[in-house]
Design a protein around this nucleic acid. Structure first.
Lengths: 212, 212
DNA sequence: ATGTCTCAATCAAGTGATTGATTGCTTGCA
DNA sequence: TGCAAGCAATCAATCACTTGATTGAGACAT
């Protein structure tokens, strides 16, 4: 991901599916590096180690390529979400898991965040991208809102909490954090702690929280 | 701003300063419409009503033009900030003013938000843009953090509030909101109400808040 | 007269995409 | 087992613009 080296010493031939996956991966890296502004089909082909015409054989247009990237992002996030068991956890624990997942992205998967924010920016101007990104973001916010609602109803979070805007608050804080110049792990810990305090039920004591 | 009409029937000649201001304004509109990805110097020149060579006479390169846009943004935000007297207000009132300012941007100045988010995205990849945007965002967050700190110390906001991450939370929530598909005025009201609840000192009663 | 501003024409490089020939792989048949 | 056929995948060369920027002449203002 650092050196602009072809991703693999490509065999002369790969199945369409493998090739498209490699193309999506290369495109993700390049979008993170240069944005859509600097995204070039030739650069992608070079990164994969194929000819420009081969790229067009597998992915018919730049527009189709961007849609492929959005889909690969959706799959990556879905896999991350599935990696943790969520049954039997309290709302606070579920929320901590969301924070853990985001911290993981902030680590060695920062490309995924960068590509996501680039796509969200593009979604503002392009209805087809918005159609792809809308459900992804909407689902994330809904998951968080559901956790918040359950936590409020269970008395873990404050009684006056409004789930939808509170979810916007949490998601917005995390995504904004990743763009700030001081996005260190320590600062993320500090942020998540503040987010928890922002939603906590003040009528609960610290001991009651620990017992859960 | 809707019709792609030259901004004015430009006089054959304008002073350099007026011309550059018109160029910055046209560029802002076009960045909001098409992003940096779709920004073309010829489109800007056409929007202003001048020849492409004239644009280059006044602004030597595309890079310089983007710097000009960032500066025009800084000026616009500074003017907005100055439009309200901030002396003698309580921390809660000051924070409400920040929300009011943002609501105003969400209204008929949405272009400014769009350009800002495009620049922030570009800043991630371009050090000179980051150098321009960093102080702007940093200042906003500092203003909010200072308000929060003062409010905490005055007992208006909760005692365990950590100003810097809490400011990140508020700023992130607002900026994230502007990109969401349901960014209506009612939903912003709902969000700001939730943000206030997130920072409020629970040891204060509603009446105490009203008295301030 | 001089300096500033404007313009049409043009440059050189880049861009997404296409074309037609070639290569690689699989399958079926003798 | 070997060969031929057919389809999928690959490539170099090329196309038809597009793009940021430049050049040199002319217009304008003082």
């Amino acid at each position: 991901m650092n050196a602009p080296t072809p991703l693999a010493l490509s065999a002369r031939r790969e199945s369409g599916e493998d090739r498209r996956a490699a193309i999506a991966l290369a495109a993700r890296d390049l979008i993170a590096e240069k944005g859509f502004e600097g995204l070039r089909t030739r650069d992608i082909a070079e990164r994969v180690g194929i000819n420009i015409a081969t790229l067009h054989y597998h992915v018919p247009s730049k527009e189709a390529l961007i849609a492929l990237v959005a889909e690969s992002l959706r799959i990556a996030f879905a896999e991350q979400s599935r990696a943790h068991v969520r049954d039997g956890l309290t709302p606070t624990q579920l929320l901590e898991l969301e924070f853990d997942d985001y911290a993981e992205l902030l680590g060695d998967k920062h490309v995924l965040i960068s590509v996501m924010t680039e796509l969200l920016e593009k979604a503002r101007r392009d209805a087809s991208i918005a159609a792809a990104m809308g459900p992804m973001m909407g689902k994330w916010k809904q998951i968080v809102a559901d956790i918040l609602e359950a936590g409020r109803d269970a008395g873990e979070f404050r009684a006056d909490l409004d789930p939808a805007p509170a979810a916007q608050m949490l998601v917005g804080a995390m995504m904004g954090f990743s763009k700030s110049p001081n996005a260190t792990p320590q600062n993320f810990e500090r942020l998540r702690a503040e987010l928890l305090r922002a939603i906590r039920n003040p009528d609960r004591t610290s001991k009651e929280y620990q017992d859960e």
